[in-house]
Amino acid sequence: MNARFLRRVLMLLATILLVHAAAFFLMRTTRGGPFDEARALDPQVKLALEQRYGLDDSLAVQYWHALTGLWQGDFGPSLRYREVSVADLLADALPVSFAVGGGALLWGLLFGIPLGMIAAGARRRLLGQSATTLATVLLALPNFVLAGAAIALFSFTLGWLPPAGTGGLAHLFLPSLCLGLPLAAQISLLVRDAASERWQSAGVRHARALGLSGQRLWWAHILKPSLTPVLAFLGPATAAVLTGSLVIERIFALPGLGTFFVEAALNRDYTLALGVTVVYTALLGLATFLADVLLMKLDPRVEALS
């Protein structure tokens, strides 16, 4: 276990290095720089700025600086937000993203598992098929449409919730719902497939033949084992959801992390883009690892297989 743990950590570090390098060189070979704007800067001013941020060094030197920064856990100053370091930006944005993403995970599990069970349990009836269709529709809607519809319903028609902004739990409700619904749809499809399979498995047929039915059958023999694929899926999904979504953050005016993945690249904020990339990679590694550990606890066969 320990050796494997160590190996995974090393693998994660190697991945981070690779991602860091890939992101750095991809960005730096893309046309345009952080100080190219509608209103041209005086060439001298631009030069001074580039010198301040070390953008006038050779690419190799800059990469070396980025690498040593990474080693020291210092991503440097943001190029877009003049007085703010990348660390500050991340520290401000992460709690918001975690709150919305956490809420989305809750919604995803809360809706997804029952929906999947309904779809599996009643799969030959209209109810089950409607559940499947609902999930598919949720997956097919672009999330900006979903968010727009949610705002139209809850903020304008019913007037229950604020349409955007920060300030309290009420402000988190809609964004986390809109982020969580597609997640719920995916979870429900996974649960449905697994539960259907379980339903037809020898074990369950045996249990039914023995007269087991109702709650116990569903709970112990069908639901619990059906959660294995959900857990495997939740690893990467958690990382994705916790790092936020540009569309949701823009529509609900939330200062989360998701916007950075897009804006940093669009603004050529190299340091920030590298920062969020590394954070995302680390989160992804961590979440996958946790999911694997949980998976092993739940189903010891997994360890034997891998």
Partner: peptide, 11 residues
Amino acid sequence: LLLFLAAASCG
């Protein structure tokens, strides 16, 4: 998760 939500809710 609830902790996160609570932390974020004090605006």
